[in-house]
Design a protein around this nucleic acid. Structure first.
Length: 288
DNA sequence: CTGCAGGGGTAAA
DNA sequence: TTTACCCCTGCA
């Protein structure tokens, strides 16, 4: 654990608001000066943007450059991806202009699984609050600049929580689901390391769906927002469904096209970049 | 101030 | 295919 700093000059496709408020993550908070501070793995990092320069600094266990490049997906060529997607249709073009600074974070698989189980039928402020309480209660404390931060609990750490404990932290009906899934992973009935080695997203999804609280939408979010990083999935929630029906079918009635149909259409339309297409569309329509 | 709908879904009927 | 679900917030 040491204080480190890493600066990237002339960065492309990187806007703090687009990255942290497009709905992919729950542990980054805006500071008074406009920068963001967040926790991932055993790192506490503050990110600040000045013109085309991005400054990362904070407490980092390993080499900060490598940690940042991995987490912020810095090795992927977003410029090229955006050019490709923009050619598909006008909706894509407009939404990409709007969210040009989006990057999909490579978040810890375990944390992403639990976070999105908690996200079911829930809103972002409350999801963030619950995850914060889980971390404060079962995670490890890291201090930086006089403030306390807490790492997301490991399967072992979280396995100490009873269903009742979880309920008291405000998880509501999701308590049982988090409890059961934690048990599955902690006891190695589902091995996350093996899951990472699997090559086909279909196979991984199959396994993810065995976890209580993980349905088709949550599974797709895990595939897209974690280190698994499968860009060929298209998570369909009520917003995406509404947007897709409106944009491509001019149907105000969101019950017209069903979840699976929309997913099929999207994969057909956006191919192996469907996941990113979803983020641009969703962010654009939700903010506007 | 009280009451009520609805929220980045899932599981069970 | 439909419905309840915990909790919190916004708004009549």
């Amino acid at each position: 654990m040491r204080e480190q700093k890493y600066v990237v000059n002339n960065i492309d496709s990187f806007e703090l608001k687009d990255i942290f408020e497009c709905g992919q993550c729950f542990r980054w908070n805006k500071e008074l000066d406009g920068s963001y501070t967040g926790i991932f793995k055993n790192n506490v990092i503050n990110v600040k943007k000045e013109n085309n320069k991005v400054i990362f600094e904070g407490i980092c266990k390993d080499n900060i450059k490598e940690e940042i490049e991995e987490y912020f997906d810095l090795k992927r060529n977003y410029k090229k991806i955006k050019e490709e997607l923009s050619k598909i249709d006008n909706n894509m073009k407009i939404s990409i202009e709007y969210g040009q600074g989006i990057r999909l974070l490579n978040q810890d698989l375990w944390e992403t699984i639990i976070s999105f189980i908690i996200s079911a039928n829930n809103n972002i402020p409350r999801i963030k609050g619950i995850i914060e309480k889980l971390s404060k209660t079962y995670g490890k404390k890291i201090e930086w600049k006089g403030k306390e931060y807490y790492t997301f609990p490991t399967p072992k750490e979280l396995s100490k929580a009873t269903v009742k404990d979880l309920r008291s932290l405000g998880l509501g009906f999701r308590d049982q689901r988090v409890y059961e899934t934690t048990k599955l992973v902690f006891t190695n009935q589902i091995d996350l390391n093996k899951l990472k080695e699997e090559k086909e997203s279909k196979k991984i999804k199959e396994t993810l769906l065995k976890m209580p609280g993980v349905g088709p939408k949550v599974a797709d979010c895990i595939l897209l927002f974690s280190t698994l990083k499968y860009l060929n999935v298209f998570p369909v929630d009520v917003w995406v469904r509404r947007v897709m029906n409106e944009l491509y079918f001019n149907l105000p009635d969101e019950t017209k096209l069903k979840r699976q149909q929309i997913e099929n259409l999207a994969v057909q339309k956006y191919g192996n970049l469907a996941g990113l297409a979803q983020q641009y569309l969703f962010y654009w329509k939700r903010e506007a």
